[in-house]
Design a protein around this nucleic acid. Structure first.
Lengths: 114, 114
DNA sequence: TATAGATATGCATGCGCATGCATAAGAACG
DNA sequence: CGTTCTTATGCATGCGCATGCATATCTATA
């Protein structure tokens, strides 16, 4: 999982979430493992859901984020495009910047929680 | 509704969302209208859900965010405590700061969305 | 050729959650 | 008192969505 920051950031395109912690992690896991199913297993989510998230990502962005190839035994699989890697990395950077920008306020805020 | 920023910020206490755009708006509406039910109507949500969110808020924070009084015909209703007002306002401020901190990145990001 | 493992997709089942309805009880006002 | 409007709570119904299972198809390897 992404490390705990006490905050969640989500990017909305036309009201609907286009990128968030879940999709970012999925992209990173696919980049690591080279397959959607392995990434799904690693994250404890169903292959179906992971596949739908990939579909949503590719539909949301102007260029492909993940490209897939059918077949097993290392014949097929999924690769994150350089473009997709950039989007995931940029999202992480935005998370960091947002987190840093409100760090002081957030610290006080969290102290008000039971 | 809160104005569109292309982003959503949520504050997590122990992993569970303690404050976000929905709860913040609910607090603001209750402050305006003086009742949970009127706030719920204004937001198009069921009274039940609004009441549960208020319950969750009061449970999440160390001090009461909303205090209620039974009765109608302006006898009862709900008031947002000064403490609750501060928490909602501080959340809005964090939204602004986070938004400002990533504004440039976000602008480029949104341009990558279909 | 058989096997393993991957994408891609449909479908039934189930579960969580939101809604809606009902109810109780209280408070001000005519 | 009766009406109105509120908080507070329970409960049944329904809906959306995630899971799980099944299937089809494909690819490399043994």
């Amino acid at each position: 999982m992404g490390r705990y920051r006490g905050l969640t950031l989500r990017i909305l395109g036309r009201g609907t979430p286009a990128m968030g912690p879940g999709k970012a992690e999925l992209i990173e896991r696919i980049a690591e493992t080279g397959s959607i199913s392995a990434a799904a297993r690693a994250m404890g989510m169903s292959y179906r859901r992971a596949w739908q998230l990939v579909e949503a990502l590719n539909a949301a962005f102007k260029e492909p984020v993940v490209v897939t190839a059918v077949g097993g035994e290392r014949g097929g699989g999924a690769r994150v495009t350089p473009y997709g890697r950039r989007q995931a990395a940029l999202f992480r950077k935005m998370e960091d910047k947002a987190s840093a920008a409100i760090a002081a306020d957030l610290k006080r805020y969290l102290r008000q929680l039971r």
